[in-house]
Design a protein around this nucleic acid. Structure first.
Lengths: 150, 150
DNA sequence: GTTTGTGCAAATTTTTTGCATGTAG
DNA sequence: CTACATGCAAAAAATTTGCACAAAC
């Protein structure tokens, strides 16, 4: 099967988005986006992990730039920020097809599964309507213990 | 109207729970629990905020003890840990009646509303069943923009 | 009395920032 | 060229920990 989204396409979209805001496409930014594209939309990396992966891959990027780039990509909706476990945020590709998925995390080993659920989406809409908020997004985090850890 | 739960009752329950685990009831622990009881189950405080409130109230507690106490009370299910915004965990009373509520947060001003929703609860159960996890708890976080910030 | 808890200050961890230099457009 | 981005190292913020002393049981 063919890849759902090519790296070139996303990089092109990113470049356009950056230019619209008076920002620039840099090798560092491309590296971060490419990494997320390569690993796919189901992986949740911390800033440190992104940095280590790139450095291990012979790329020269500083951790400070990773933090700045991650914030930028979240602002631009290319990435989504998650707070699944303690000790720092994690990020994943904000894939259109996956933007409304949820997470099931094992509190022992950190294993993370994703699932979709329409009623949850509706619950977010309902809550916003009730309090007259404008919905940005909603995410359900379920904590549990996986079979292997029992 | 009479208070739903008296401070004495919760303190007594806490004391019993502590003793069961070979731990001790201290003035500091009582202070933290009392604070959460006074403010009710809809308030979300950070460790710093808990500390400031107690110190402002002429109580002498260290921030380190607040952190230790909060962790302890979460372990004992007297408090629930939330990760609603960036920059640190927040805690709220793990009231039986409110244990399955969810949060709607304004990304601009931080205003937080709570709501309940049965389908969300069911979604958590379903996800656990699907992956054979044992459910601990689940929470829906909805991000949006409140009327005042628009 | 013995064991657990607290305060303090130092250490860790995670993230941000100031500034000189580099580079995309 | 000029504005924006990066790297580095220092700063800030959030949380944890070692240790001597205090207090609960």
């Amino acid at each position: 099967m063919s890849p759902a989204t090519s790296s070139a396409e996303a990089t092109g979209t990113l470049k356009k988005g950056l230019h619209q805001e008076g920002r620039r496409m840099t090798p560092q930014r491309r590296l971060v986006l490419d990494l997320f594209e390569q690993i796919g939309s189901g992986s949740h990396l911390s800033a440190e992990e992104v940095h280590r992966q790139l450095v291990d891959n012979q790329s020269k990027v500083s951790l400070a730039t990773i933090y700045r780039t991650l914030r930028l990509l979240v602002e631009m909706d290319f990435l989504q920020e998650l707070e699944l476990r303690d000790g720092g945020s994690r990020f994943e590709l904000a894939d259109e097809e996956h933007i409304h998925h949820h997470h099931l995390v094992c509190v022992r080993c950190g294993r993370t599964e994703e699932f979709e659920n329409e009623p949850v989406l509706q619950a977010g809409r309902d809550a916003c309507k009730q309090f007259d908020f404008e919905l940005i997004d909603s995410s359900l985090n379920v904590r549990g213990i996986c079979p292997a850890c029992r």
